[in-house]
Amino acid sequence: MTIDNRAISVSLVILATIAVFYVLVVGQAFLVPLAVAVMVWYVINALSRTFARAIPLFEKPNWITLILALISIGLFFGFAINMVSDNITAVRAAAPEYKANFDQMLIKLGADSRFDLLPNVKQMVSRIEIAPLISTLASTFTGMIGNISLVLFYVMFMLLEQGTFQKKIAAIFPDRYRRHSIMSILSHAQEDIQTYLWIKTVTSSLTGIISYGVLKWVGVDFAGFWAFTIFMLNYIPTIGSIIATLFPAILALIQFDTFTQFFIVLAGVGAIQVAVGNFLEPRLMGNSLNVSPFVVMMSLTLWGSIWGIAGMFLSVPITVMMLIVFAHFEKTRYIAILLSGDGSLKFAEVNGELAGMEQANSDSRNTA
């Protein structure tokens, strides 16, 4: 009987997993804007909290700091939409010229006897199509802009509902222990995701701004557009930073038809990525995120295959939320340990407190 129960449980878990992935794939058009809206909502609340700390008049976030955060986010979205819209047509129009420069460079490369030992490399490089690559990037940004109105619509209702959220939780979970457990999960998830997104936004902005200075100094076309691309790609763990370094360097190569600007951009943007990503960002993050780097890469691959580029952006916040949820339940805590970076869970004190509360509730019920 026990074996049958275990078989049924395993079967139910497999069926539930298949159902979840089916819903994630089929409902992509609805779920991706909703997930992005949740992340934007987190950033708004994190920014509101930052304003409360920065302004001496406020002890904690309130409606004034929330309005300041909304204005800041609105200005950012307005800047992004205008900048991408103004540059996207020009970038597409310049693609044939870049392709001509790239082909000319390959001809010179083939005529140079010093590169006779690299036929495979030259053959591989000659197959690179510049125009479709730029068009794909432009189409991606266009699609993101097209979903902004829906995302902002979701965010507006989340902000209107967040004031009554605790009352709803209290009504749904009248038991004090279960209510405290749910609120603990939500509180830790909100705190960690807000911290991650806020620090990632600050470091990505810093990387984009400094990279803009390098690209402008070298004379790369549409430096603002490529700096914004660097800013966005830095939200994708590891792979995004690599692409954000290589992409503007390749564009410099095909624009100038020489290697000098290519190496300057590659070294300059690469040094910025290393300095911010390997030194500044870990110092700011501290121990707030204890997620295994291998798990981050696996999550990046998984969510990228399900939701494409949007899934890559959302992979780390989703993984952090899963780790927090798994850590709060004894039966799934081993999964949280596997997902963590060093096997330690910072929720141990909370879990101990909840266990004590559960014991107290049980004792009071027995006494009654």
Rank of each mutant, 00 (worst) to 15 (best):
S344A: 07
D103M: 09
G352Q: 06
L206V: 15
A111V: 08
A223H: 03
I73T: 09
I172Y: 07
M83H: 11
I239N: 03
R127N: 12
S113W: 02
I134L: 15
L47G: 04
V10C: 06
N366K: 15
E97K: 03
F225E: 01
A94L: 11
S292Q: 00
T238N: 15
T319K: 01
E349Q: 11
N120E: 15
L31K: 01
L47W: 03
M83T: 15
P237Y: 00
F21P: 05
L106D: 09
R53Y: 13
E191C: 02
S205F: 15
S126V: 08
Q166G: 10
I199R: 00
L34V: 05
E59C: 03
Y196F: 15
N101R: 02
L75A: 15
G343R: 01
S241N: 07
M39F: 05
T195I: 11
G343N: 02
F222N: 07
I14W: 08
N278I: 09
E349V: 01
V274F: 00
F347Q: 09
K200N: 07
D342Y: 03
G163M: 15
T89I: 12
P282T: 12
P293Y: 05
L109I: 02
I145K: 03
V13I: 15
K99V: 11
K331C: 11
V40P: 03
L117R: 14
K331E: 14
K108V: 12
I3H: 04
A244Q: 04
I3S: 12
L300M: 01
I88S: 10
M312Q: 10
F165M: 12
I8C: 06
W217I: 12
L215R: 13
I309M: 09
I145D: 06
T164F: 14
G143R: 09
I128A: 06
I130W: 04
N87L: 03
L117V: 13
S135D: 14
A138R: 08
M297T: 02
S113N: 13
R283E: 15
V296Q: 06
M158D: 05
G352S: 08
L12F: 14
L206G: 00
A131L: 08
F231I: 10
T2V: 10
S126N: 09
E330K: 08
I134A: 07
A355G: 11
A171F: 08
A275H: 09
S113Y: 03
T195A: 13
S364P: 02
L323C: 00
N101H: 03
L302P: 06
G143E: 13
I128Y: 12
A37F: 00
N147A: 12
V325T: 05
A327I: 00
T260K: 10
F228I: 11
L75C: 05
K122F: 08
M1C: 10
L12Q: 09
L251A: 12
L118M: 15
T367L: 15
L253G: 03
N234H: 08
K122T: 14
I3M: 09
V20K: 00
N351I: 06
F165D: 07
F76H: 06
S113D: 12
